[in-house]
Design a protein around this nucleic acid. Structure first.
Lengths: 202, 202
DNA sequence: ACCTGAACACCGTTCAAGT
DNA sequence: ACCTGAACACCGTTCAAGT
């Protein structure tokens, strides 16, 4: 509905329309007709720029992760703890890329850390990386624990769990997917985060 | 096409037709019209017995796993639901192997599904695999839901979540690890399962 | 090169009408 | 109670035709 300059490229209008729809509702279906109508173009034009529905969804995902997560969102107390943590985890996930980019990233990871014998050097390089992710997540959890959003003890288990979920989501970005991963990714992140925040001493 | 006795209940004919379709092709879509035609009933009749497509698919799933995995650990009611589900997930994880074996397995997965351009063939092959895992987990959840261990709705989200956790654990078996993964893997599995079973409607 | 919109072949669900 | 089949409101993709 926004009055984009009519001269703006159709491709751009389509992406903007789709991004707006997702912004309004992450579960939005992004059907050809809905997006095309919102962008003010024909379905044929949409198909010209995005040959397949999957191509469109990947482009939208990339667009969103590109310019919607600026700084460390953990301290933005205007949001509930769970939303902040999800946003932080998204930041971790962002560099994983989508589509071809994701596949190439995993290609590098495979050659560096999986294919070669795990010499001490290989191990050290990987563990350094992993430890950085670990520290980052642990930091976020301590911030939230200070606010009382989760228990203070036993962070190790929670961090390990979140890292595993992130690894799963990241590899799934490189694997073929059934449908828009945006929605399922969001749902999975919230499921994992709720799991961590609702921690009951079972 | 099998000449079931015309007197057999429609419900049974529908289930048999759907099961046959899945047996022939695990990726079969089981659309209303296809199943109804195969069973020799109308779409309305199908809807009468299975008010929703999801209901049909669950019934078919139960039918199949009943006589394909007769001694599935999910049925061992001597254990609490969470332990049974963890054991089931372990079964899924087992073929991933450990150490060198896990690394080689991921090497194959990489060459098959990540490195090549995702042609329709590649996608189809992967999705068939994934869908099988999906169905299996979904079946376990419906069994536990029948026992009241978790809500009955919204299984899609939970299945997706568990699959992602399994993917994460599986790739971590191929990556260098800090210490014995056995313990952290068990903890993560229980964390994920508790997350699914303690599902609160947040 | 870019775009249109109709057409095609599908979906799942609803429902008046039959037996 | 069980079943029919048309109708509805959607899908994603294709394609001849326009500019």
């Amino acid at each position: 509905m926004t009055q984009d300059d009519r001269s703006t490229g159709s491709r751009e209008r389509i992406l903007a329309a789709a991004a707006a729809m997702v912004a309004e509702d992450v579960t939005a279906r992004l059907s050809v007709r809905a997006v095309a109508a919102r962008a003010g173009v024909s379905t044929g034009s949409l198909r010209f720029h995005f040959p397949t529905q999957r191509a469109l969804q990947e482009a939208v995902l990339a667009r969103i992760y590109e310019h919607v997560f600026p700084d460390d969102p953990i301290r933005d107390r205007s949001l509930p703890a769970r939303d902040r943590l999800v946003n932080c985890l998204r930041q971790v996930l962002a560099p994983a890329g989508v589509g071809k980019q994701a596949r190439e990233a995993w290609g590098k990871a495979y050659e560096m850390f999986i294919a070669p014998e795990p010499t001490e050097q290989v191990r050290a390089a990987y563990l350094a990386m992993e430890r950085e992710g670990w520290r980052r997540i642990e930091y976020w959890l301590t911030v939230l624990a200070d606010e009382g959003a989760l228990p203070r003890e036993d962070h190790a288990r929670r961090v390990r769990f979140l890292l595993t979920v992130l690894n799963g989501l990241s590899i799934e970005r490189a694997l073929p997917a059934e449908e828009s991963i945006l929605r399922s990714e969001t749902e999975t992140l919230y499921t994992a985060v709720d799991c961590v925040l609702n921690a009951r001493t079972a």
